[in-house]
Amino acid sequence: MKRLTKLRIAISATVALLALTACTPTVKIEPPDKPIVINLNVKIEHEIKIKVDKELDELLSNDELF
């Protein structure tokens, strides 16, 4: 009787182990077939405007401020 029970446990454990290993997910890492393309449509405009009043410009040119 004990032998039959041990045999059933062994068979059950083997079947359970095979069932668990059959459900193991497989992860594959592969490079893409096409290169990675990043489109950057960026337009950068930079504009600096300096306006000086005529009076202030005259003061700065005469060195009266400093």
Rank of each mutant, 00 (worst) to 15 (best):
L56T: 10
L59Y: 00
L20E: 04
K49V: 15
V52H: 01
E47S: 14
K54F: 04
K2E: 15
I50K: 09
A13K: 09
L4V: 14
L40Y: 05
L18E: 05
E47V: 08
I50P: 00
L56C: 05
A19G: 03
P31C: 01
I38E: 10
S12F: 08
P31D: 03
I36L: 09
V15H: 04
E58N: 05
T21I: 04
I29M: 08
D57L: 10
E30H: 10
P31I: 00
E30D: 12
R3K: 14
L17K: 08
V27L: 07
L60N: 04
C23D: 04
I38A: 11
L65T: 04
A10M: 15
I36H: 13
N62G: 14
K54A: 09
T5E: 15
F66C: 08
V37E: 01
D53S: 06
R3D: 13
K6C: 12
S12L: 09
E47C: 13
P35T: 02
I11Q: 11
T14K: 12
E55V: 07
I36Y: 13
N62K: 14
L56H: 06
R8C: 15
E55Q: 03
K6Y: 14
L59T: 00
E55W: 03
L7W: 14
R3S: 11
F66A: 07
D53T: 04
R8V: 12
S12W: 11
C23N: 08
E64Y: 03
I11A: 13
R3V: 15
A19Y: 01
I44G: 00
L56K: 10
K54P: 01
K6P: 09
P32V: 12
L17W: 13
I9M: 11
I38L: 14
L4A: 15
L60S: 06
I48G: 02
R3P: 02
A16E: 06
V15C: 07
T21H: 01
E58D: 12
T14Q: 10
M1R: 11
T14M: 11
C23Q: 12
N62R: 14
V52R: 02
D53M: 04
K51M: 15
A16M: 08
T5Q: 12
E30S: 06
K54H: 06
I44W: 07
I44V: 08
K34P: 00
V37Q: 03
K49T: 08
P31Q: 05
E58Q: 10
K28H: 09
A10L: 09
I36N: 10
